[in-house]
Amino acid sequence: MPSFSILSASNNTFRNQRPDEKTILVVRKHWITLFGPMVFLIFFALLPFIASYFIYQVSWYDTITDLYWFIITVYFLILWVIFFGNLMIYSLNVIIVTNQRIIENHQQGLFKHTLNEMRLDKVQDITVEMNGVLANILNFGNILIQSAGTQNEFYFTKIPHPDKVKKTIMDARNECGSL
């Protein structure tokens, strides 16, 4: 169905993309960055069920049953918005590698973000760091990209498959430089 193709197919286009610019790679942080907030949210999501076990046993529960369920629905609605607010920030924190530049969108809040970019032909050196047991098991790490331009370096943290990302950027840089 054409109207639902947006949910299955994408050319990874982005705002301010140039007409002759093609997206090569889109990278988001490793899912481990969401682990902490999600644990908190799951805990808060279970709280009403734990509370209801104790509330059911009080004698005046029957008088506030309807109010209790109204408060629960508002509570879960707020949790739902907070959950997807976190997911929004996670999914908008993105590194885009095109055939011309590397763009980093750093979403810091609902209405706060920074946008950095570096020309691909200015990339000089890429360093990958993988520190710790968890990073090696789950295959995520930090990438330092140094350039010759005024934007001296990019430092991306907790990137999945950093070796592959490094290779993709280097290949794109070499192809860009050979044109």
């Binding site: 947006i6 949910l7 994408s10 997807f84 607010g85 929004m88 908008l92 969108n105």
Partner: peptide, 22 residues
């Protein structure tokens, strides 16, 4: 307000399929 802001950010600024699905 927050629903509109979140959906707007996902659709307008999201890159790829995942933000639209979310």
């Amino acid at each position: 307000w927050y629903t509109f802001a979140i959906v707007y950010h996902f659709v307008r600024f999201g890159v790829g399929v995942r933000p639209k699905v979310l």
